[in-house]
Design a protein around this nucleic acid. Sequence first.
DNA 1: AATGCCTACAACCGCCAACGC
DNA 2: CGCGTTGGCGGTTGTAGGCAT
Length: 276
Amino acid sequence: MGRAPCCDKANVKRGPWSPEEDAKLKEYIEKHGTGRNWIALPQKAGLRRCGKSCRLRWLNYLRPNIRHGEFSDDEDRIICSLFATMGSRWSLIATHLSGRTDNDIKNYWNTKLKKKLMGIVPSSSHKRSLHLPMTSSPISLLHTPNISSIASANNTILQAQEGYVGPTHRHQMKDRNTLIFGGEASCSSSYNGEDVGMHSYLYNGVDESQRLMFSSGGNADGYFGQKSTNGLYGETLTGYSGIGEIEQLISASNVCNNVNLFVDENKTDEKVMYYY
DNA sequence: AATGCCTACAACCGCCAACGC
DNA sequence: CGCGTTGGCGGTTGTAGGCAT
């Protein structure tokens, strides 16, 4: 026995909403409210639509004070920051952006912001071409069943840099609550305020006051308020809430074809995991 | 001009927690 | 307390329009 359908799919209209349907729904809700019963609403409103579809249409497009259109830089920052701390909790993120819906934010993230943060926006003027030599054969990230278990079980050192890695550029999982950054910022000077790579996205997109993740992130000048130049840097972090964020961000990076992962077997005193 | 590809985004699907009986 | 129903949510899909070839 499967789950009972929420409506009779054979008798409901699907696809884009017509202006007439919008008007009917809007008029009904403005007059009677939703009654906290979306399933019964379409029949009362004279609509041949599924209740869930009515709810979605109202919440995302018809209710008052909805804003559509371009996202501002401030909104970008808020979304990035919240995504880094809470992940894809779009409805929660939407509560921080007045007039924006979770669906809008989700779509914006999936189509534009994620790519922008990964530094793969086609309009970007620079190309990252620096690839440091690898010391062992890469294993596709896609073939790695559970990156968090690998990382936590081995007290892993995670080494990451968008587009490339270098052996001295690493982030150490001291324990589940502390992450140590350190090493040489070997990234290309072609980073700039707009082209923030995965690295800076990984570790800068949170409120500093929460003492979560933080990094100098190469030359990601100012985008998240932290500036560094090429050279040595390191940070000890407390309050890091776990490997989940890293897993999440690596998972998000699957949009890039060049994301791979391998474990350096040559290390005897520590496990080193790279992705690039 | 025709075709194929890509992007953006509206809408749908299915899971799950909350709620009420 | 158990069960059915509903709302809410995140992930995914469908498709229109724009762009490249």
